[in-house]
Design a protein around this nucleic acid. Sequence first.
DNA 1: ACAAGATTTGGAATCGATTCCAAATACTTC
DNA 2: GAAGTATTTGGAATCGATTCCAAATCTTGT
Lengths: 332, 332
Amino acid sequence: MARATVQDVAKTAGVSVGTVSRVLNGSPAVSASSREKVAGAIRELNYRPLASARDLRRDRTMRILALAKNLESPVISEAFRGVGDAAAQSGYVSLIAPTSGSLDREQQLVDMLRNGSVDGLVLFSPTMPDHDVEALATQLSVVQLCEIAESEEAFGVSIDDRQAARDITRHLIATGARRLSMIGNRAARSGRLREQGFREALAEAGLDAARCLFAAGDFDFHAGRQLTRDLLAGDQLPDAVFCGSDTVAAGCVREITDAGLRVPEDLAVAGFDDSIQAEMCVPELTTIRQPAYEMGRVAFGALLERMTEPGRHRRGRMFLPHQLVIRDSTKN
Amino acid sequence: MARATVQDVAKTAGVSVGTVSRVLNGSPAVSASSREKVAGAIRELNYRPLASARDLRRDRTMRILALAKNLESPVISEAFRGVGDAAAQSGYVSLIAPTSGSLDREQQLVDMLRNGSVDGLVLFSPTMPDHDVEALATQLSVVQLCEIAESEEAFGVSIDDRQAARDITRHLIATGARRLSMIGNRAARSGRLREQGFREALAEAGLDAARCLFAAGDFDFHAGRQLTRDLLAGDQLPDAVFCGSDTVAAGCVREITDAGLRVPEDLAVAGFDDSIQAEMCVPELTTIRQPAYEMGRVAFGALLERMTEPGRHRRGRMFLPHQLVIRDSTKN
DNA sequence: ACAAGATTTGGAATCGATTCCAAATACTTC
DNA sequence: GAAGTATTTGGAATCGATTCCAAATCTTGT
């Protein structure tokens, strides 16, 4: 059996297509009897309005899409829950797709916004250059989340990564660290800001950074181990390491422990994100908590504004407050 | 400026809409000169065909959707990469959405298949009852991945969870365990199969299960800790614990270690999935590796078949081979 | 019972891309 | 250069839901 159409429903209900559509869309200008007849026909035929026809006529889809390099990150996952819940409350469906860091894949997905497959886009970790993000955001309904391009025009929601890194580095210094290293990710926008904050905290304490290492490829547990191994192979050991993520910090702690050193007595380690990894680690990690869920809700709010009020176009970045979470991987 | 249409392109190119469409779709019946003029107009107007209009006319979207309870699971994430890569090779875009275990949310997303927003559906961990999965799969293009409903009609790809659990339990027994406990998840279809396999391995060795515990809510690190705490509070300790996931096993190991016992000397612990958690754990976990990426590819293949050949409809389950990975959390 | 007003209804036009058919043009071959 | 075939083109019909307008029906007050 082929799919039933609004015509079929009209025929079996003995009314016109106009009336069927009015029932479908809850128009008040329908008599109770018509409403019933239509409802009956819909049930009988198991009818569903075809999305493409509706979208074509209405010129919107009530769908949004989020793009992220990968979906495993707890922060992204949590932020996307926030987006999804806020979206649902406004009648939108939110979907997500991983780009795997491939420009082609990202392009293909961004095209879904260009060709009207979705009404809006949330960018978690764009692979395209900042300039392209800016161009895209000025033309269409786009909001950035977590990783924000350097641009006056595009709008984005995140924590103040620089300040957060400064806060946690200050904490390391306050607990007695004097030779601080960092394991960072210069490939990420947020990673560069965190490095900045780290260096600022050192500068304000009149300290110089000990050897800092930056990931070449992935920024994960294995990278954390490898970079820490390199760090430990150096001639003078640091007494604290600030890692750009909890996962990397977990690798760092593991490598230090395997080398027979103690955390935090010999080396303090700090992470970032307050993901479950921070709690799984032994000792548990001092880290920065991001209000990811709330960031997602706020980001959707801005996107909704952008989608529904063609005039308005927010710009710049919006910071939500982060929180320093002190655990056993740093001295007290 | 409003969006350009195929009409606009036709006008500026000085050809008919038919010709524009033919160029768009790579029809060979177009002269080189027309092709060029159209290409020029498209560039000039920055034209993109509107998805809803195209989809309406073609009666398909070239999009598929995957649903999972949550996206953080490394197995799901990896399997979805497989789906995505295979889909891309066939010109499909694949999206994913988390249901958070909410029936309403799941319903809303499944409706995207019903109303033609997508051509096919991949179900990772349905919240709806098996019976509904079966009904859905017989009517529309659906394939299950990892978690498979008990149904003859619906098709699904997974490992043989029962056999895998049997394999790893046999390994525990082979290394000397005699009092085996399990920390499992009866809420999941795969969890029930794993419990079955666990019990079968015990039975064939003539052993009785020691106290087994099952999660009430989430099946995560914290649940693993809590359930292990309960287990250790019992009067007679087991000498091995089989956990239904690496994350739970990590919680289990942590709790055992914190209680001053040693893994594997006092208690051996086995996980499941071979996620990164298994390597982050100290000691690293013996576990079962799932060929998640390949499972994803295979699942998409079946889905494609279902979407394009209306007659064919695979049924039953397809198993891909798992692998026992032996690490330090069990004796050798 | 009739006019004026309110409510409900039918049906055609519309959204934008695709496709089919017939017409037009180009190319062979003798 | 004519006849025939092959290539290219224009344009109308189509997909299915929504919406607007005019017509029909129902209320209400007198």
